[in-house]
Design a protein around this nucleic acid. Structure first.
Lengths: 137, 137
DNA sequence: TAATAAGTGCAATGGAAGTGCATTTGTTAT
DNA sequence: ATAACAAATGCACTTCCATTGCACTTATTA
């Protein structure tokens, strides 16, 4: 996967075996994953390494953090051209109360939210909870 | 405060000194509070009691839980007639990145969110982050 | 007033996040 | 090529919040 290496390099991240594996793992997943998920997938690797890898990815805008209300932070790959830090680019997340999975609804942007005078909106976190398409069938 | 007692009884919650105090504490606060906040306010009481009291309040829809992304769950009193469990009644929460306080914007209802076919929306959690009115002055 | 249920307090557990330090691996310059 | 250096990884440990089990106290009801 030459492309992943290029991507990492373009973000000033050194290419290591671990990072390639974790990137691939995230890319295969369509859902947001917890640190434990990654841990289970790579039992040979140390938790700290996985933790720091994810944090590195997060800093470099390769993954974004999701707070779906379960109390456990999840992570998902940013899409091509995803600018997580830009407010207007924020998409919403769907958390299934049945299978407990959280997915990015990338093409569903968050509508403009009005806040009272004096309040300055910098960021919006929107999680819709319910039953996902797999579980509702 | 006869009214608080009536309220608790109407929700099938036994009136105790502790519960009245905690209710009053929450009523005085305009912001959402953490368990630690309550703990600090009632140093004589045990943490467990406070925890279970809040949980009881939550079950009976007297308070609602707020996940503002700080990783610490906060709680706030439901307003009169607030039906937290009803989707259409959901208000949004504002978290100030400066003073770290979270408040309910009760009169700001969450706009209708469209989800893809197959997805069933049951609940929406919306947290706007930024600078609150006190800090922006 | 005895019996019972609910509320409270103490102690302990578990899970996730985060940090310090030693070791290994990779990069760069001589 | 190799020494010097920087980054990455692994291990151990700590902290913080959430949660539970059990004993004890308080309130309710028969």
């Amino acid at each position: 996967m030459q492309t992943i290496e290029k991507l990492l390099e373009s973000k000033d991240i050194r290419v290591t075996a671990m990072r390639l594996l974790i990137y691939k793992f995230l890319a295969e997943k369509e859902i947001a994953v917890t640190l434990s998920d990654i841990e289970n997938a790579f039992e040979k690797a140390d938790r700290t390494t996985l933790y720091r890898t994810i944090k590195t990815f997060e800093e470099k805008d390769i993954v974004h953090q999701i707070d779906d209300g379960t109390g456990i932070t999840k992570y998902a790959l940013c899409e091509n051209g995803c600018n997580c830090e830009i407010e207007t680019d924020l998409h919403l997340h769907f958390h299934c109360n049945n299978c407990n999975e959280t997915i990015c609804l990338t093409d569903h942007k968050i509508p403009q939210i009005k806040v009272p005078d004096g309040f300055v909106s910098e960021n919006v976190n929107l999680v819709v909870k319910g039953i996902c398409d797999k579980c509702s069938r």
